[in-house]
């Protein structure tokens, strides 16, 4: 697989005067392949948001480089806007960015900025809505009349409609109820599969990460504390705990069981795996007795 996005020695420092607090990041190196789902975890203030704003050129690195398809995105600073349609970024609470009169027009805003128009634009919007299950009945509605969960989906669809090769989402499920969460996760999965797109998700939720992410980045105080396959990262529970994070709850339950003398493996990170494992132990135990 080829590297879609590569970050080399990225450092960002802020000069004092800013009214908005942003967190510095230092010396970050990693890469993602096409079609991968990468999770970024870390505390509030660990530099996650600063890091991802470099990936689509909203922030310029103080030091280091960001390569998209092996090309430095800042090679031609004037063309940085083109990068933003290739590396899509969905901010936290994206429903606050909705502004158009209709759902259709809001979703079309991104593709229109890319220069699409007429049939091409219409096909683009219709295609993404079909993929994400946004019904055509919604097209003429005002985005402000939708429920919270629906607004979130429309806002995310607005970025997906640009069909970015890399889609970054900052806490996409924060503040939603279980139904809304399931809907958004499904959207992300369908987009990832349909276009073999790379997806980068920032989240606090280890349980969701265990199910979704192929690889994980752990950020701590502006530095990259860990980077590896999801299983590998979650196996280092002590290291995660040291920086105030934790492994999924189900993994902690399994660890507690192990302490009690039940022989369970360390690499159980999802409820499904745990149920499978415990059922086989139960059967095994039954046979022995």
């Amino acid at each position: 697989m080829s590297k879609v996005l590569e970050i080399r020695n990225l450092t960002h420092t802020y000069s004092g005067n800013s009214t908005t607090k942003r967190d510095a990041v230092s010396n970050i190196t990693f890469s993602v392949d096409g079609g991968e789902i990468l999770g970024i975890i870390g505390h509030t203030g660990s530099g996650k948001s600063t890091l991802v704003q470099h990936l689509n050129g909203l922030l310029k690195p103080t030091k280091g480089t960001v390569l998209f398809e092996e090309k430095d995105i800042w090679l031609e600073p004037k063309k940085i806007r083109h990068i933003r349609s290739k590396v899509g970024l969905v901010f936290q609470y994206p429903e606050y960015q909705l502004f158009e009169e209709t759902v259709y027009m809001d979703i079309a805003y991104g593709p229109k900025n890319m220069g699409l128009s007429g049939d091409e634009l219409r096909v683009r919007v219709e295609e993404i809505c079909k993929l994400l299950g946004i019904d055509e009945d919604y097209f003429e509605k005002s985005p402000f009349d939708l429920s919270g969960g629906e607004k979130r989906r429309v806002a995310i669809a607005g970025v997906m409609a640009m069909r970015p090769k890399v889609l970054i989402l900052d806490e996409p499920i924060a503040g939603l109820d279980p139904k809304g969460r399931a809907d958004v996760i499904k959207m992300i999965e369908s987009y990832n599969k349909a276009y073999n797109a790379t997806v980068i998700i920032i989240s606090h939720n280890m349980e969701d990460m265990a199910v979704l992410a192929d690889k994980l980045i752990v950020m701590n105080k502006g530095a990259l504390a860990m980077f590896g396959k999801t299983d590998e990262v979650f196996l280092k529970a002590d290291l995660l705990r040291q920086i105030g994070l934790n492994v999924p709850i189900v993994t902690r339950v399994m660890a507690a069981l192990k302490k009690k003398g039940i022989d369970v493996p360390d690499n159980i990170f999802t409820v499904d795996d745990a149920v499978k494992c415990l059922c086989s132990i139960k059967k095994g135990g039954g046979k022995d007795a």
Binding site: D177, E207, I249, V271, A274, L278, C279
Partner: peptide, 23 residues
Amino acid sequence: LKSVGLDVPQTTELLYSLKNNGF
């Protein structure tokens, strides 16, 4: 609880799945 769209913690989720699997 799940039927009215509530967030169920993962421990409960696990115990519930086990129960459905004959535990």
